[in-house]
Amino acid sequence: MSVSADSEPVSCTVKPPVFLQLGDAKTDTVKSGVCIVDVTLPFGKSVNIEEISFKNFYTAYVTVRLLRKVPGQEAAAKWTTALRDLALMENPHTEGGSQDYSSIHRAQMQVVPDHVMSVRFILRQPSSAWMNFNLQEIKIFQKEVSDLLSDLTLVDFRPDLEGLPDPSTVSSSIQQMWALTEVMQTNQTTASIGRFDVDGCYDVNLLSVP
């Protein structure tokens, strides 16, 4: 489930948290218990998210929203909610889970987190027991086979198959041939019979005169 140790997080900018304030921002220090953290990717870039990981700091619930662009239409990016109110603490008033590391996997999200330009975390802490709350060490990991899968899903080319053989039977035959070739290749032996000549010819260097 977790991302393998060797994969690197995507380089992105985690903006400082913005707390929702009640009343006058300067004089009134009562906190609403809602905080927003935005994570943006470098301009013009998008990412197919595999996993998001972070360390909690007294956040009770997190909602994740994604700004996704529609492939082919740069302008039409849309915000969608990928995950609503995931509980990070067992009880908002007690310590349990308050400083745990968590990760949100692709499969947990309600929308497919592909072509994401920006991620917004909405943090909630209903308990007044804590002065502050936040998420730390936010890291986004990219799906490695992204290109491949987008190739797979984006085939909208419907060729004219008039007079052509059925592609699925041809495909299954070729897949068999591919598999057979793979079987042969994976069973290649390193053993040799200790021959010095190649195709009946000796390497000149081996023919030394004592």
Binding site: V145, L148, D151, L152, V155, F157, P159, D160, L161, L164, P165, P167, S168, V170, S171, I174, Q175, W178
Partner: peptide, 17 residues
């Protein structure tokens, strides 16, 4: 995975067409 994508019916249909 990559090889199987290349041998998918869609890809073949495209190549043949």
């Amino acid at each position: 995975l990559e090889a199987s994508a290349k041998l998918s019916p869609d890809q073949l249909a495209q190549a043949m067409a």
